[in-house]
Each structure stands twice: as structure tokens, then as C-alpha cells.
């Protein structure tokens, strides 16, 4: 892949993980030496890579993970408000993924199983601290909560897939994952 033409200024990119495992972020780091090319083209805003806590105006937002609780909703909405282009990164963001497999169970059953009935728990109770975000009844793909511009599936998407996707985007091309880069697993 030819390096992307350098845009007039560095693009500002924010990333976050909602109900995900950070695997997609790890895969992002798997673009290896392309990271050096990438930092010439972009700068990071809020991201686990920078530890910036609040998202500011950005060109691109990358969202890993689905929406499983109220905090996810707030963060996702923040990203939508601040990012010109919002991308669903990985299987969980695209269709809920592994966390969404609780969707056929009533929430009460999930929480009671974890906090009350698990062997070894005595007098366990479902946490009710107002600090904690409440879980939604179902885990949702992010496109069911805000408008999403692009989708990059995979569990996780491979480093090359992420690199191809980003270089397309930065160069002003509609990203395409042809030639074996597209995977759902």
C-alpha cells in the first residue's frame, strides 16, 4: 500500500473501548512500524494511548465494543458530538459481539448469578452505588444508539486491515477491505 498523501494538517483521532476487551486497541498497535508513518499523519485526542480523559473536536473517532451500560451511552454520544467521522471498530461495536450473547438472558438472571448465587459469595448483593453505571437490558451494537459512518469488523480486525482502513480514510478514499482483509472472526 502506497503511503497516504499527507493532508494539510494532522488529523485528530480519538479512540475508546466501550463493552469491549481492548483487543481491537491491541490490534491497532499491531500495525507496528506503520505507527511511525501514522504519527506523521495524525495526532491523538482522548484515547487509552494518551490518557486524555475528555474528547475534544476530532476528525476521526474509533469505537471499540458495544453498548452495555449507561456510561457507554454517554461516551458514545460524546464521541458522536465531537467526531466528524465515527467508526465502529471490531465485532462488538459492529454487532454487540461476545457481550451481546447475554441478550437472551434476563438481566436480573445475569446479575443475580454473578453477585448473589455464585459459589463462595455470602450475602452477596447487586451493587447499587450511584457511582456505577447501570447496565442496559440488552447489549447493543453502536449503530443502534448513534449514527455511525464506517464499520471495520473483525475480532479483532487485523493490523493490516486497520492500516488499510485508516490510510484509505486519511487519503480521502472510501475505505474498502478487499483481498482477504475482511473477517468477522
Amino acid at each position: 500500500m502506497s503511503p497516504a498523501p499527507v493532508p494539510a494538517r494532522k488529523l485528530r483521532v480519538a479512540t475508546t473501548s466501550l463493552a469491549g476487551c481492548f483487543g481491537c486497541h491491541m490490534s491497532f498497535l499491531d500495525i507496528d512500524e506503520h505507527l511511525f508513518e501514522l504519527v506523521e499523519l495524525i495526532e491523538f485526542d482522548r484515547s487509552p494511548l494518551t490518557d486524555i480523559k475528555d474528547v475534544g473536536p476530532c476528525d476521526i473517532g474509533l469505537i471499540e465494543g458495544g453498548v452495555c451500560n449507561a456510561e457507554n451511552v454517554h461516551v458514545l454520544r460524546e464521541f458522536r458530538r465531537h467526531c466528524k467521522t465515527l467508526i465502529a471498530l471490531g465485532a462488538c461495536a459492529v454487532n454487540g459481539g461476545l457481550p451481546a450473547q447475554r441478550n437472551h438472558l434476563p438481566l436480573s438472571e445475569c446479575l443475580r448469578e454473578v453477585y448473589q448465587f455464585r459459589p463462595g459469595l455470602e450475602n452477596g448483593q447487586i451493587p447499587n452505588d450511584p457511582e456505577l453505571p447501570l447496565p442496559l437490558d440488552k447489549v447493543r451494537p453502536i449503530h443502534e444508539v448513534v449514527r455511525i459512518d464506517y464499520f471495520l469488523p473483525g475480532c479483532p480486525p487485523s493490523g493490516p486491515a486497520i492500516w488499510k482502513f485508516l490510510t484509505d480514510l486519511i487519503a480521502g478514499r472510501t475505505p474498502r477491505l478487499a483481498g482477504g482483509l475482511l473477517h468477522y472472526d
Partner: peptide, 14 residues
Amino acid sequence: LDAALAEARQLTAR
């Protein structure tokens, strides 16, 4: 979205 939290509200009495 708010209704999607109703069950959790009930379980936590919040």
C-alpha cells in the same frame, strides 16, 4: 434508552 435501564433500576433500587 431510559426504558432500557428500567430493569437495572429495579434490581438496584436506584
